[in-house]
Amino acid sequence: MTLHMFDRLSVADRPVAPLRVAASVPPLAVEVRHLSKRYGGGGRGGMIYDLLAGRRASAPEPGGFWALDDVSFTVPQGGVMGIIGRNGSGKTTLMRILSRITAPTKGEARVRGRVGALLEIGSGFHPELTGRENIDFSGAILGMTQAEAREAVDAIIDFAEITDFLNTPVKHYSIGMYMRLAFAVSAHIRNEVLLLDEILAVGDERFQDKCRHRIKQLCGEGRTVLIISHTSALLEETCDSLLVLDKGKVAFHGDPYAGIDFYHRDILRLAPGGRLGADGRPYRASIKVGRVRGWRRARQG
């Protein structure tokens, strides 16, 4: 009896994220519960057996590591959530699961509406096809309807600034032109939920600014947006909540300003002002090397 109660409490009814208290609570656009993803493992060598036994392809293998470990959060419709974390903290894994490129090992996510993912540059490009053909094709792959693609094509061409090269195979494009076209296609998806990675803002400084501007626009159009970024200013400007990931776990979820402070202070261990120490290392070393920290302070002082 008691055991049963605990079961229910621990799995189904555990509160996931503080709910916003508002006059009318908008329905959730993204709902992530106990999401975990395990990678690697040497495998058991029993693949034929697994296959015949009908073992699910995504069942965990021994060894390996948890790229995402029991992550839970929600994003209301129209919300813009930033995601920040160091390399390997699970940001990209989370986005890949939400865009269904790969399946989680445990847990569940619910997404309301069509998902558009702007995670990789030129995902649907073919070198032999011309710019125009690639717009058509990668637009479809990224989730545009026929009508939307037809409507967006001029805006895309205009944004990418490649009007003169529309009928040239993209293999003859410069890297800059290729990247511009790829970003332009991705940035004109009209889906209800957008997964963005700021890494997409590419090219020369002027075009980078244009990309950032477009990202801000996308965030401000009432869509639900999840955005990975390392630019504090961009996150503070666009997001209404922030998720800080560390080693696959949620380290912080809440107000973006507080989240960025937390990230700088407790994850990156940066000195006030967001810079590294004089030796190019984090200002405050981790607790494990406390003695080194003492030494460095002594030297600096």
Partner: peptide
């Protein structure tokens, strides 16, 4: 009606679970 590509209709809920749909 336009054919919707790459996912669900605007109001559909996609459930993402380990084994896929």
């Amino acid at each position: 009606s336009p054919v919707v590509l790459g996912g669900a209709a605007p109001s559909d809920v996609t459930v993402i679970i380990p084994g896929g749909p």
